[in-house]
Design a protein around this nucleic acid. Structure first.
Lengths: 226, 226
DNA sequence: GTACGTTGATAGTAATACTATCATAAATCA
DNA sequence: TGATTTATGATAGTATTACTATCAACGTAC
């Protein structure tokens, strides 16, 4: 299988971690540790010890641990968009495309051999647990200006365009798209940790149940027959 | 106007801040500072300086700043539920009740004279900016066991019951309730900081636009005519 | 073979999130 | 009134974090 690389916005790193062995080790181990410890308890010191490197070296790749998190989450959204393109290529009907997109978004992902350095499954868990932390910060406006959220915004506007294609008169395609995207991870988080907030928790396969919930939500909302 | 008090889960504080002058000052100033600085930059040291007290004294009320945040956000959800009860009292039709509830949830709140110590407007901004931080933590399961999220869960299940009343066959009342509750603050956050993620940002009054978006979302989703 | 770029080693700093101890003033109770 | 809790303040101290700075060593490229 061909090994691929995703282009990640250059403001997210100081030195491209995909360009060196150490960079790849930093990213791979960061995914492991954030998944395991949670973002708060994760530190560059722990990371440096695990890969037998130093804090100073890691700082040469990432300005701080928060930018590293945004880098990882952005990588995930970009990867999702790439997979969505693959999956929707041969679907002429926008309705089918939307369903396929939702399937992909709510999928419990396995290792993607096109990107051998990244553990997509662990990254998926990180997205579920930590993705909000990318933008729920005081500096959100500055970060946004610097283009750090383009990965997420790109995916969201793709979804919004698809919604508009199906129902051009629907007034809130972007709001619906962002709501569904957010809910897609939120409901899984609730299912695991605050089960009384979502029926998804009672299902044998929460991922499938999540898909059903969101599919109904989106199609009912933009349904023109009403 | 009668001055009221909300009962907040006792695990959220060490000593009830509503029981003393210092306690009230801590809460009032914390709201000001978190609103102004954001939760990350907010510290007990800054807070203690502002109210001419000491860190040690604040620690006698709250175990740490995170629990103080949960206390504030819980206060807000409980207050919302209290207001919702007022507003829905005389509405026999569940459809009218749901609309009134949504109006209340999406309202840009003003000072409530029944609670003179709390700046509801600032607290509303804190909820929009920081509410996720209450539960997006590694200790979420322990916190949940300790009952720290009952305020939010109570509001969510109220909404879910209302949804079920309108459409008893709808399969995801809690998931829809939590999605709408989350979206109600999220969309306002996006409108202000990441406007391309929501049409709500383009409206003259984002609060009204947010209401319209959510109202349509919820009623279309549980509509039985389809 | 030299120059440059990458990494490692080490040290240091300001701030944070606490914990502990003791003194003092005020409120409570007998 | 006097004794005793109780609440707060004052002060000090600690481990950890999130960096920044400097210099040495190593390998590669020209």
């Amino acid at each position: 299988m061909t090994v691929l690389q995703l282009r990640i916005h250059e403001n997210l790193y100081i030195k491209d971690p995909q360009s060196s062995t150490l960079g790849k080790k930093i990213v791979a181990e960061a995914i492991k540790q954030i998944d395991l410890l949670g973002f708060e308890a994760f530190t560059f010191r722990k990371l440096s010890l695990a890969i037998h490197s130093t804090e100073a070296s890691i700082y040469r790749y990432f300005e701080n641990k928060h930018r590293l998190l945004i880098y990882l989450i952005t990588w995930y959204w970009s990867w999702l968009e790439y997979r969505i393109q693959l999956v929707t290529q041969n679907l002429p009907e926008p309705t089918d495309r939307l369903k396929a997109v939702l399937k992909e978004i709510t999928n419990r992902h396995q290792q993607d051999d096109s990107f051998p350095d990244i553990d997509e499954n662990a990254l998926n868990r990180i997205v579920i647990a930590e993705s909000d932390k990318t933008y729920r910060i005081k500096q959100v406006d500055q970060y946004n200006e610097d283009g750090l959220f383009r990965g997420y915004k790109s995916l969201c506007s793709y979804l919004a365009r698809l919604i508009s294609e199906i129902n051009p008169s629907y007034k809130y395609p972007h709001a619906l798209a962002s709501t569904v995207l957010e809910a897609s991870t939120q409901q899984l988080f609730f299912a695991e940790h605050l089960p009384s907030l979502s029926e998804v928790s009672q299902s044998k396969d929460p991922y499938v149940s999540n898909y059903n919930f969101l599919q109904e939500l989106i199609f009912q909302t933009i349904d023109t027959s009403a």
